[in-house]
Structures are given as C-alpha cells and as structure tokens.
Design a protein around this nucleic acid. Structure first.
Lengths: 111, 111
DNA sequence: CGTTTATATGCCTTGACACGTATATGCTCT
DNA sequence: AGAGCATATACGTGTCAAGGCATATAAACG
C-alpha cells in the first residue's frame, strides 16, 4: 500500500482523480506522461484498490476509491496523537512564558 | 518522503518510537532484525528528518520528529475531504431510505 | 592497556521496478 | 471491411535500494 503511493507519478494521478473521474487520455495530457506509463500505473492502482474504472466505449473512466488511503490515514493516527501532544506541551510552555512575563511586568510596575 | 515510509522495517521503527525514545539495541531486540539493518534504516530516517538522536555514552537514543509525517498527513488532506464527502452522501442516502421506509409503514398501517 | 559493548559503515549480490519502444486489443464510424 | 482512435500489454534495459557479512569506530570497564 505504501509502496503504491511511493511512486510520484501515481501520487500525481491520485491527486488528479480527487476532483473528478478522468479518462486515460485526459490523465496522459494533463500529466504529460506517455500513455503506456499512465496505463501501467493505473493498473497498479486498480489492482491495489486505489481506483476503479468504468468503460465508456473505447474510453475507461477512472475514479478514486477511498479505502486504501483511509488505511494510510489510519496508520498515521498514533503519530497524530504524538505530535499533538507535543504541540500541547509547546502551547503550555508558551503560556507559562507569557504568564511569567506578565508577572514580571506587574512586579516591576508595582515597584 | 513517501519512499522512506514505504519500507516496512522503517515503519516498524517509527511505530516503536511513537511511544518513547529507544536505543539502537532496544530496537534491534524488539524488532528482531540484525543490528546493521537497524542502523542503516535509522540513518535513512535521520537524514530524512523522521528521527533524531542524542548520544548517551556508547548508546544513541533515537526519538521521533513530527514534521515529515505531518507533511504526509497534509498530502492526505484533499483525499480526506473526498471520502468524507462520499460518506456524507451515503448518510443522506441512508437517511432517505429510512425515511421512505417509515413512510411506507405508516401508509400501510393507515390502510 | 586489552576486552567487551554499542553503533556505524563498506562492499557485494540480488531483486524489484520504472521506463521506452513496439505491438496487441477493441471500439467507432464511414 | 477498413481506417483511426483509445487503451492495454509484452519485452528488454538500466537503476536503485535492501540484505548479509565483515569490519571500523568509539566508549566503558576491569
């Protein structure tokens, strides 16, 4: 799964498809990559469940499927907790800094 | 960045570090992989900014750095919007189904 | 000092994969 | 049926990265 999205062209294709479904030719033109390359990457994406296609005569319209990327998202969850904990710590720290600064000011003024 | 986390052993290391910092030896033992392998992967992770190390005598304690994984998270954002839109559509659909079912029941009862 | 412990690095081989080019499949329209 | 377009596949090639093994660096400790 992670191997799939490690490939830059594949990520580009996925990003294209997030707005709406596209035919192979449209992808080919927008990303300026040779048609066999597009088809090969689409095959990989399809077999991994990232996209699905419907036939429209000679064209195939590819669209995004959410599940695999949701799994990536799920893998990230523990790390999100990690860095939000760190952000909280940073915020608390900054709060303390601000507070002590304010305290010092007050103290000085009272003098 | 994506290439970094495409490697299963590296993902395992990252998952280990999410709880707390670990020495090379601890990682080696918990993941049961040869020490040079661990060191090499840690090098890759370090150079890509996923982890950092502090020296403790002969040991190096590795800990997570949030930024690169946050970028992965950021890349996922558009897709999150995509699939939550789809979930919304599904919910609305199910709501309509439930509503029409209830209506039918009422109608039948009234007969 | 020499030895043990902890970690890093170098070299080599192997396998996977992306790409280019050519070709096949399949549909449409005249 | 034949020509042309859209997409898929096959094959050969080059590159790059992971793993295994040996070895280097460096600190602790007796």
């Amino acid at each position: 799964m992670f191997e799939i999205i490690a490939e830059p062209n594949r990520r580009a294709i996925l990003s294209l498809l997030v707005s709406s479904e596209q035919s192979v030719g449209e992808i080919e033109r927008q990303l300026r990559m040779p048609q066999p390359t597009v088809s090969k990457h689409l095959r990989v994406l399809r077999e991994a469940g990232f996209v699905e296609a419907t036939v429209d005569a000679q064209r195939r319209l590819y669209r995004l499927k959410p599940e695999p990327l949701q799994e990536v998202d799920a893998w990230l969850a523990p790390f999100r907790r990690f860095w939000s904990a760190h952000l909280d710590a940073l915020e608390r720290h900054l709060d303390r800094m601000a507070q002590s600064t304010r305290t010092k000011r007050k103290t000085r003024r009272r003098k």
